[in-house]
Write a protein that binds this DNA or RNA. Sequence first.
DNA 1: GACAGACTGGAAATCGCTTTCCGGGAGGGG
DNA 2: CCCCTCCCGGAAAGCGATTTCCAGTCTGTC
Lengths: 330, 330
Amino acid sequence: MVTLEDVAKQAGVSLATASRVLNGSTRQVGASLRAKVERAAVELGYRPNLAAQTLARGASNVIGIVVHDLTDPYFAALADGAMRVAADQGLLVMVGATHRDPEQEIAYVASLNAQRVRAVLLAGSRVDDPHVTRRLREEVARYRAGGGRVACVGQDLLEVDTVAPANREGAADLARSLAALGHTRFAVLAGPAGLLTAADRCAGFTDALAALGLPAPLVIHGAFDRDGGHAAARETGDATCVFAVNDVMAVGALASYRERGIRVPDDVSVAGFDDITTLRDHVPALTTVRLPLADMGAKALTLALEAGERTRVERVAGEVVLRQSVRRHE
Amino acid sequence: MVTLEDVAKQAGVSLATASRVLNGSTRQVGASLRAKVERAAVELGYRPNLAAQTLARGASNVIGIVVHDLTDPYFAALADGAMRVAADQGLLVMVGATHRDPEQEIAYVASLNAQRVRAVLLAGSRVDDPHVTRRLREEVARYRAGGGRVACVGQDLLEVDTVAPANREGAADLARSLAALGHTRFAVLAGPAGLLTAADRCAGFTDALAALGLPAPLVIHGAFDRDGGHAAARETGDATCVFAVNDVMAVGALASYRERGIRVPDDVSVAGFDDITTLRDHVPALTTVRLPLADMGAKALTLALEAGERTRVERVAGEVVLRQSVRRHE
DNA sequence: GACAGACTGGAAATCGCTTTCCGGGAGGGG
DNA sequence: CCCCTCCCGGAAAGCGATTTCCAGTCTGTC
């Protein structure tokens, strides 16, 4: 491996000079030496050792993103938004996928801390487990104590800069829109009981129905993914309108109904949440609550990188988008 | 930031001992000292500085994955497969998204080299541009000269371990299957002219038709994404069967036909390539060529990590999956 | 009882780069 | 003409770990 010392030797200058030439330091270097160093670097194919730079500088140009599942379009969109701002700022990105294991999330924060990354973005729902949350908070605190910056997309539970989707309100808006179509018997494919994003959406939906004087929906718990929706859809009974707490579950539900010859929206209306772009061409088009996912990812990383003294919470509203998967109920 | 020295001091031992305790070295440390060090580390919340470790050890525990677009399910699946084997081996993952800019790809290899990552996985099609390919090869060679390991998913053009999908053969199989259904007038939504994956699939398809004595298909170039397929589908003329060189383009084409009231498969048959899982519930179900994407990603990273002396090329076959988007042509 | 060999703990060199500090030469003002 | 300042180049001290080498302590065997 060719080192800076090799370059300096080849150029006939000192280490210090070579360093100053090859990394935009504040110090000036004479044109002739500068040229020599640059030539030597190219000739030898020099690549700075980033670990050494990080060590010497005390700060790296890497950021970390922790997601639950990269193959879930929700997280892919979030990560993509964040990665674009990282690229704009010349930052490299480490991505960790926890596959929904909270322990992994904690482990990733520890690893990213060890890497001394400049910022960490925690994307995805918090879970309703005080013990896990406490340990995550400890790990985050440790990282921040060393100068690390953290932002989160999801619930504002970690005392860090947060981009918080308005899950309750969005779900409530959706409930009102669906009720306005004449539905009265609802079911909610509610995801896991302990997942806060799922719980908030479910609660927002249920509360709004109650406020309208409508009967409580049938709440069916299950996995937060396509198969969870698929399974839960078998238990929606005589509901005329089904709300899946995220789009991929809604897709699972649609598939389940299709397999069983139940027509959507004629026999049952279905709505989701997130408006992931991969569903853009789904048939029937899915009614959902749109979240600007890429923007949220970008915003969260921006918050993390700005040296704000107090933690900020940016709430982002969801917009109800009515499409063909729901229809008026007579 | 608490350093190893702090821990050593607090535990009343030397730096060397602290290091040996906290990182599974081969050397033994007495039980009492070991306990002291461990306690001190916990009390102080010590996290090793990975940059320093990397520097001292001369090798990091990070691998890099370079993809074109994380929000494309094809790459998400590939990356996910690779990330699982990385996690198994206790490796961290850096992900770079080039957004299809070959310059970015080169830049990422340089960055990952600078990071001294243990291995780099280049996922995604090579392009037909000798100049770009040469520079990428140079950068790869530089990295490998320093002990780096590289694998690639795509065309075997870089003289590195490669997982090469059988694009030509898969497309040819598909062509034969479709021809067996009675189709004679084909169109190919061929993607960009310079993208080798697209070109190979197009060529495999075209050659197979020629071998069958059928007329050459209408080849329409365009972008390699959903919108590219959507646009190209407007120019398929009187073809009775359309092959989009990847699934997301096929989805765009299906959407285009739907918008224009052209029924699939009644008026036109449509097939794609890849069998991305997000399309599992698409209506109509898409005929395609299945590639085991997650396995391919996992395999590629495994190849990279194994210290093989000669570069290996692992070909992976695609399997034609006939679904509702095609029908017999009378 | 003595000595070889196995273990354990510590001092110090090392990894590759940054940056402070210092010295010498050039330029400008009194 | 001298002195002060400004600039540029180099020597060397870190950054936070790992690891080699060395010394001291035990054990076991003859």
